[in-house]
């Protein structure tokens, strides 16, 4: 059974994105193990000592978890048409001399209080994950946008909307397949890894 990391894309204690990942964790328990990982508490990225690129211990813990996982599910809210600074910050640390995301299958989901379901944040997140120092394998042509998320869950954390639940189930099945396929997309892995490793924050 695949082992996934569910990255909560916010540092807020009340988050429907966390709720969504918790729902997936429970709902898909028979298909995969999903461990939720929080990004709260990482210091502000400030490009310290570019020659040595030390990352905080808390970031290293996340790196190790992602390295050991078959894939990552990131659920992001939308702040000001983009992903929250806290998530950007985490991704900066997770690509500073370390490269856990290179060729790692990633599924993006998102929830928002309004109608749009974090659509623009998700588009930004795709571009971010595409950058040479992250270079994740983002599941293409798939989008899960949970709008009006405050009303989206039952008191015991079940996703209320049947149609959306069906969609999520389909997407998750596809993600399991995508993870398998990605394992075969290994011809460029070496050069990808090299490119990411050679990527110098100095040269950017």
């Amino acid at each position: 059974m695949d082992k996934f990391i569910g990255l909560v894309g916010t540092n807020s204690s009340h988050s429907t994105n966390r709720q969504l990942l918790q729902f997936m964790q429970k709902h898909f328990a028979d298909q995969a193990t999903i461990e939720l990982v929080e990004i709260k508490g990482l210091p502000m990225f400030n490009k310290p000592d570019p020659d040595h690129k030390q990352i905080p211990a808390a970031a290293q813990v996340i790196v190790d978890k992602i390295n050991a996982a078959d894939g990552v599910i990131i659920s992001t809210p939308e702040y000001d048409h983009s992903v929250p600074a806290a998530l950007m910050n985490a991704l900066q640390w997770l690509s500073y001399g370390v490269h856990p995301f290179v060729d790692k299958p990633v599924m993006i989901t998102g929830a928002s209080y309004g109608a749009l379901g974090s659509s623009r944040a998700q588009a930004h997140l795709r571009q971010i994950l595409d950058s040479p120092e992250l270079k994740a394998r983002i599941m293409p042509s798939s989008e899960f946008l949970l709008g009006h998320s405050l009303a989206g869950f039952s008191p015991d954390g079940e996703l209320l909307d049947r149609e959306q639940c069906n969609q999520l189930e389909g997407l998750f099945k596809d993600f399991l397949t995508f993870v398998k396929i990605t394992k075969q997309l290994n011809h460029a892995h070496e050069s990808n890894a090299k490119e990411a490793a050679n990527f110098s924050w100095e040269d950017k």
Binding site: M44, F45, N46, S82, A85, A86, M88, N89, L91, Q92, S95, H124, Q127, I128, D130, S131, E133, L134, W201, K204
Partner: peptide, 9 residues
């Protein structure tokens, strides 16, 4: 530009 986007700070 960091990671194709602006800095987290």
């Amino acid at each position: 530009e960091h990671n194709h986007t602006i800095n987290a700070s």
